[in-house]
Each structure stands twice: as structure tokens, then as C-alpha cells.
């Protein structure tokens, strides 16, 4: 694909993102008439639903989708592994354990003005990140192989504690834990959006800043080092930047599957593997994808909702299989 066409794809994704961001809040159980948003006082309830529920929700889904997609892309490059996801290093299981413990022990609903369950999940995510980092450091250096193993081990460990917590919980608690694990984007007002924004922005900027380095890491660490990349530094800053971002997202939305795995792959198929264009494309695509999924999730069986994690995984599962079958022998990513 020529450079010109790659930029055309990015411009198209930008326009699509704007369209989706503008259109999605109008879609719901009832289509909000345009008049409602101009005349908030006159149309009362409809305007309130639009401004306080749908708009923040669309913002959250776009932010979360973009953040997960870009982290997935960074991890795939970092580990030179097509199956890496933002959750590969145990962030999701840490957050899930935090949420499960919170529900089991019925901690206060609001902590420091933030949603208690989100704070608890975030603490779990940070703990898992630090644990993985500590374990990787133990065995000298900070190699990606050790990191992967540590991530998987921490994931399993936290998941088993999570299961044990569920086993000890009553029916209502177990239901709430499982419901949380499916992921959801129910928010009211802009507090959550503003909490998530700094994580998503800082993490995305770090990844956007390191696009040359990501390209070189894809060709192998030795190659990257010989081209002048400070591999240890880049790996560390990517690890912490994206983990914090993912931790923030998971704390708010739960472990939403597959956005982080699929979006980078789809974009790579469309636009190629050059991270200088792949990164913005993946960011936009992830945001668009999750927003569209969530719009489906809250309209298909309205007034009830399908958890967005279920929808994105339903779309993601078959794609994942297709990817496995299609992947040509020996090709990395």
C-alpha cells in the first residue's frame, strides 16, 4: 500500500470516529430527537438521558476501546507475539480479583469520591503489574520471556484466588462478580470519563512517541539494540505506560475481551505493520469498534442490555480462529 493510501485510511478512520462519536449518543432504546439536546429544559428527561448517560457512555467506550487496542498493539510488538493482549501480563486478573474482593467484603461504595469497586480493581491491577515487574527483575535483567512467564503465572494465581472468593460468596455476590467480569460501560455523568482520560492520554502518548522503537522491536531485540534503541528503557516505559492505561480501563469497564487483540490485527491487515501509521489507525479503530459494540449491546435487547464484553468477544472469537488458521508459517505478527 502506498504512503498516500495509508494516510487516506487514517483520514477515513478519523472521519468515521467523528461520525460514530456524534451519532452513537442518539441511538438507544429510543432515538433522541435533535430538538432535545438544543432545548434541555423543555424536553426534560430525554435531554438528561442524552447528556448525562449516553454522551458519557460513548466517551468511555471510545476511550476504553482506543486504550485497549493501542496497548494490545504495543504488547504484540514488545513480545513479538501475535497472540499478546493487554491482559497478557495479568492486569485483568489483578483488577478482577480487586473487584471480587470488594464485592465479597462489601466495602464502602465510594472511596475518596471515586467508585469503590473501580478503586479496588485499580489497586488489584497495580499490584499485579508490580508483582510481574518484581518477578521479572528477580531472574536478572528484564527479559520479555521472563516477563511473559511471570505474567501468566500471576494471572493464574490471581484467577484462582478470584474463584475461591466466588466460592465463598453468596448468590448475590457471585452474580455481581460474574457480571463485573463480563465487562460493562454503565456510567452516569462525567466523573469517570475525567478519571479515565489522563490514563488513556498518557499511555497513548507514550506509545505514539515510541513508534520507531516499536517497529525496531518487531524485528527482534538484538536488531533493535544494534540500530541504537535503548531496549531496556523502551521496554520498561512501555510496560508501565500501557499497564497503567490498561489498569485504568479495566478498573472502570471490567475485562473487556478481544478489542485489544483484534484491533491491531485488523489494522495490520489493512494498513501494514509500520507502527508510524499503524498506531493512530489502531487507536481510532479500537475506539470506533468498542463504541459500535456498546451501541449494539444497549439496543439489541432493549430495555435490557447485553454486556459489551460478550458482544466484543462474540465478534472476536471467530476472528481469533480465522487468524490462527490464516497465519502463515514463520511470520512474526
Amino acid at each position: 500500500m502506498t504512503t498516500r493510501r495509508k494516510y487516506a485510511v487514517i483520514v477515513f478512520l478519523c472521519l468515521l470516529a467523528i461520525f460514530v462519536l456524534l451519532a452513537a449518543p442518539f441511538v438507544g432504546m429510543k432515538i433522541t430527537p435533535l430538538s432535545a439536546i438544543y432545548d434541555p429544559v423543555g424536553s426534560g428527561k430525554e435531554a438528561e438521558i442524552f447528556w448525562m448517560i449516553r454522551v458519557p457512555r460513548v466517551c468511555i467506550s471510545f476511550l476504553a476501546g482506543a486504550a485497549l487496542a493501542i496497548s494490545g498493539m504495543a504488547f504484540q510488538a514488545l513480545f513479538m507475539n501475535a497472540l499478546a493482549t493487554p491482559f497478557t501480563l495479568g492486569v485483568a486478573s489483578g483488577a478482577s480479583l480487586g473487584a471480587a474482593l470488594y464485592i465479597r467484603f462489601g466495602l464502602p461504595a465510594v472511596l475518596l469520591g471515586l467508585s469503590g469497586i473501580a478503586v479496588s480493581a485499580f489497586v488489584g491491577a497495580i499490584l499485579s503489574v508490580l508483582l510481574v515487574y518484581g518477578l521479572s527483575r528477580l531472574r536478572g535483567g528484564f527479559s520479555t520471556a521472563t516477563m511473559l512467564l511471570a505474567g501468566v503465572a500471576v494471572s493464574f494465581f490471581f484467577s484462582s484466588i478470584n474463584l475461591f472468593t466466588q466460592y465463598l460468596s453468596d448468590f448475590t455476590q457471585t452474580f455481581r462478580i460474574i457480571r463485573w467480569l463480563m465487562g460493562g460501560l454503565e456510567v452516569v455523568g462525567y466523573g469517570t470519563v475525567l478519571n479515565l482520560l489522563p490514563f488513556a492520554a498518557v499511555g497513548s502518548l507514550i506509545v505514539l512517541y515510541l513508534t520507531h522503537e516499536l517497529n525496531l522491536l518487531t524485528t527482534g531485540e538484538e536488531m533493535a539494540a544494534s540500530r541504537g534503541v535503548d531496549v531496556l528503557f523502551v521496554r520498561r516505559i512501555l510496560f508501565f505506560g500501557t499497564s497503567l492505561m490498561v489498569g485504568g480501563v479495566v478498573a472502570v469497564c471490567g475485562p473487556i475481551g478481544f478489542v485489544g487483540l483484534m484491533s491491531p490485527h485488523i489494522c495490520r491487515l489493512i494498513i501494514g505493520a509500520d507502527h508510524r501509521v499503524l498506531t493512530p489507525a489502531t487507536l481510532l479503530f479500537g475506539g470506533i469498534f468498542l463504541t459500535v459494540c456498546d451501541t449494539f449491546a444497549r439496543t439489541v435487547i432493549a430495555p435490557a442490555e447485553i454486556p459489551v464484553g460478550v458482544i466484543s468477544a462474540l465478534l472476536g472469537g471467530p476472528f481469533f480462529l480465522w487468524l490462527l488458521v490464516r497465519r502463515s508459517e514463520g511470520t512474526v505478527l
Binding site: Y209, L210, T211, H212, N215, L216, T218, T219, G220, R227, G228, V229, R268, G272, A273, D274, G330, T331, V332, L333
Partner: peptide
């Protein structure tokens, strides 16, 4: 034997990394 998903010129251009600054 590892293969990369880049074209020849993309790959060769990566060698210019020490002369490039971010963005």
C-alpha cells in the same frame, strides 16, 4: 529464519533510527 512483516525499503529505512528523532 524469522520473518518480519515489512517491505525491504521499510526495513532498510529502520536503520536510519539513530539519525531520527521521535515524530
Amino acid at each position: 529464519g524469522r520473518l518480519f512483516p515489512f517491505t525491504v525499503s521499510e526495513f532498510v529505512l529502520m536503520g536510519r533510527y539513530p539519525y531520527l528523532s521521535p515524530f
